[in-house]
Every structure is written in C-alpha cells, then in structure tokens.
Simulated assay, not measured.
Amino acid sequence: MNNKLLNDTISSIKEQNLDVLNIVVRQDGNIIAKHDFVEEKPILLWSVSKTFTSMGVGIAISEGYFKINDHIIDFFPEIPQGKINEYTKKITIHDLLCMGSGHTECPIEKADWSNGNTHDICQLFFDEPVVFEPGIHFTYDNSATYMLSKIIKITTGTSLDEYLDKKIFQYLNIPKPKWDTCPNGIPQGFSGLHLTADQLSRFGQLILDKGVWKDKQLIPTRYIEQATSVQIETSDFNPYFATEDHHQGYGYQIWMNSYPNSYRMDGLYGNYVVMLPDKNAVITYVSNEQQNMTGVLELTWNTLVDKL
C-alpha cells in the first residue's frame, strides 16, 4: 500500500473543499492506495447504478433472453399500437443502452416522486414524443435505463437486483446490496444501488478485466468492449456542469473520458469509477459533493494519472 500516492489528491480535495468520502486506487489487480475521509459504508451511488444495469443486460443477452437489436415494443404488448409512432417502434435494446431512444428530454422529469406516488415510468417512456431517429441523438434519459431493468424482469423472471446478485455480486464477495425500487417493485436501474467504495472498486476491476474475475468469465468480453467504446456522440450534451469529459461519447451506460482510451462510471455528487486500461488502473471515488462534482473527477487528471 502506497498511500503517499494520494498526498496531492488529498491536498487538492482540502483546498477545494470537496466532499469526498472515500478513494480507492487499484493497479494490476490490487489496491495500491486508499484514503477514507469518513468510515466506509454502503452509500447511494446514483447513476453509477446504470453501469450495473448495463452489465446485467450483457449477461442476459449472452444467456439468450433477448438480443441487442430487439425492438423494445415487442416486450410490451399491452401498449396500444395506435399510440406508438414509427420512431418508437424502431427503438431497440441498443438504443436504450446508449441513451439514443429519440426523446428530447427524460420522461422521468414528469414523474411525481412526492409521498411515494409515482407515475408508471414505462407509461411515461411510451408517452414521451420520439422526435429523433432512434440511435442518433443522445439524451440523458433515466427512463431508458429503467426500461432495461424492467425488460430483465420480463424476460428472465428475476428482478435486476436478484439477477446481478447471482451473476456478479456473489462472485465478488459482495453481500446482496440494497437497490431502491419503484412502487411496482422493479429496481430503478438508473439509480438506487448502495455499495461501499471498496465493493464498487471490485466491480470497476471486473470491467477493466473484460468481465473476468478470478479466472471466471462473469460478463462477456465482447459486450464490455462494446459498452466501453463510443456508441453515440455526446458533443451536443451541454448541461451547466458539462466539461470535456462529457463530450467524448457514450457507450452502454458508460462515459468515455477526455484522457485517451479511458472510460468511467458516473454518478451524481461526485461518485465515479475511472478505468484506465493504459495504466491497468481503476480509481474509485465515493462522494457527496453537491457544488462541484466534476471537480472530483478532475482530481484524476490533475493529481493522480501521471503518478501511475
């Protein structure tokens, strides 16, 4: 363990007053440095959850439950065909994975989360106008990820959290984690997963190693190669917090980074898993930074990457 590796990172965190909770640095398969500003405990990972949903999809595809180019309308025969336009009929699993459903905004923005009363997200998804040809235009769409969670339940008969517990978490020696569900019992998919920084770093290692853990192939290598490469352009994605790291393209619920040949899991408030194949390294941040979350990611480029 070389915790001196994190000296500059820790200094920068203090100087910027960033609310980072835990950092774990892995290289060549081992933890080489870590720092806890607070004691590790399972924490809500927000949109980092999306990458777990994606890997569940990859496993389900490999097991023959559905195909990457299947049209999602075929999983929902209860949706009246008369209400579905031609673009909606074209949306595939691939389009959901890469946030290319064709919506101009996320339908979940219209959900009522007060008092536990929510709209049916599936219905919101199909009610939202599909303006763009699917697979062409990137819109950060939480409902797309939810739909993937629901499709896993429909096809496998097992909820996403149970499915990943059997297929991944048990092998990583992670007790079945909490995953927040919608009122219908479907795990949110787009958020809701609770893990510790150490547990999260193991999952990052699994992805860096193309789905292999202790010589066992848990996730298909080919799927991870697709998930960690650009499937849709994000140059037009410009929320107030956007940096160059938001304009490098998006894979299957994974972002590409401005640092060459690297990618990340990305969650609200500075929760990140940065995977650096050229360094054979994984850097995990668990944070609650509500003012400057991209500042947490940029610690990687400003204080860490050149030391690896």
Results as ranks from 00 to 15, higher is better:
I219W: 07
I224H: 14
Y259E: 13
W179T: 11
N173L: 12
R222S: 15
D209T: 12
Y250S: 04
I152E: 05
L200V: 03
K178Q: 13
D180H: 10
M147G: 09
I151C: 03
K178G: 04
S235Q: 15
R264W: 01
K216A: 00
Y250D: 05
V230W: 03
I232M: 11
L206D: 00
Q199M: 07
K150W: 06
I154Y: 03
I232W: 05
L206K: 00
Q205L: 13
A227T: 13
P260Y: 06
S159F: 10
T155H: 01
P239L: 01
F241D: 09
T196Q: 07
E225Y: 00
S201E: 05
Q205P: 02
L268S: 10
T181S: 12
E233M: 12
H194Y: 15
Q199W: 05
V230M: 14
E244L: 13
F190L: 02
H247E: 01
I168W: 11
G204A: 11
L268G: 01
T145H: 08
E233Y: 06
N257P: 10
Q231F: 04
S149I: 06
K210F: 07
L206S: 00
F203N: 08
I254V: 15
T181K: 15
Q188W: 05
Y240S: 07
G249F: 01
D161A: 13
M147L: 15
D236M: 05
A227C: 09
Y240L: 03
K176N: 12
Y263G: 02
G249N: 06
D266C: 04
S201Q: 00
S262E: 00
R202S: 10
R222V: 15
S201Y: 06
L160E: 09
I168H: 08
L206I: 09
H194P: 02
L195A: 05
V212P: 01
Q253T: 04
W255A: 03
F203H: 09
I219R: 07
D266E: 13
I174Y: 07
Y146C: 10
T145F: 00
D236G: 04
T234P: 09
H194E: 14
Q231L: 07
Q188L: 14
D245S: 14
T234L: 10
V212A: 00
F203G: 06
E162H: 10
K153C: 01
G192C: 10
A242E: 08
S258I: 11
L195K: 09
L195H: 02
Q188P: 00
T243H: 04
R264M: 08
R202G: 00
D180L: 15
D215L: 00
P175F: 01
S201F: 05
R222I: 15
N261W: 03
T234A: 13
W255R: 10
T196S: 14
G249I: 05
T156G: 02
T196M: 04
Q170T: 14
